[in-house]
Design a binder for these strands. Sequence first.
DNA 1: ACCCAGGATCTAC
DNA 2: GTAGATCATGGG
Length: 300
Amino acid sequence: MLDTVERVKGMYKVEETKKGIKVFGVKDLNPKHLFECGQCFRWNLNSRGHYIGVAGGRYAEIVYSDGVLEIIGTTKEDFYTFWFDYFDLGRDYSRIKEELSEKDEYMRQAVQFGSGIRILRQEPFETLISFIISANNNIPRIKKCIENLCRNYGDRIQDDVYAFPKPQNLANVCENELSDCIKAGYRCNYIVEASRLFIEQPFSKEKFQETDIEKARRFMREYKGVGPKVADCILLFTGSFYNAFPVDVWVGKVMTNLYKVSTQKEIDGFVQEYFGALAGFAQQYLFYAIREGFLTVQTT
DNA sequence: ACCCAGGATCTAC
DNA sequence: GTAGATCATGGG
């Protein structure tokens, strides 16, 4: 399948309001699915039941209803320069879901359950550090560590809102101090080392443009604390490789029990053949459905 | 006290 | 290249 991100940003009608903007004609988006499928860690529900969070140094409140995406706290200009890409609004997810639904019944149900998932195009450094923290950790604690990290080392952008730290701000901190501040344990060493390497050897979707996924995976694993699973998370959630397929314990169980593949090499060979360019999307639908308890897999 | 969490690293074979 | 122990931290 060819890349479907060819439609121009003018595909949506955008209206500026007192609080922010409204984008009309947005399909295949559900804030709960989007923010709770495990791809991001800085979006939370507020007292009104809306998701608030920070991305790209910008604070926003997200409301979605009947094809209208409201982004409170932003401008038309910021929408076109940042949020459009962040929410991957140029991609036709209906086509992706149709194609994946035809694969098998299990996949069809996963897609139906997480119908409002989109893969956010997140910032490389934030994604790198966040998923280093994610290793052998649980989601509530990952979110706490990252929040602590931002409060202590990120720029304050509003009253009680902090941006994700810049690499320079983490590259020279004392590991013990970092550990005391963010409570990420032994991962603090990885964070400092990775920050230093990122400064001298950064990466981005653009940098990977002419690179194949295997080479990109080897590149990512040069960062301390980045193994096979975390590498694919970073490549997928920065929008660099949509055929990346992170295998955590849950997705691993699906692969073993349903598709009868087990080793990393076996799994990747299978998903590249079976899901092709849509492997990354498939992974997210599967992960979300399993984690939410909608689909089950044998644990024995 | 023990086990687990979107695993990765280090060591030994 | 691969099986096994170890790695902070907090919640159940």
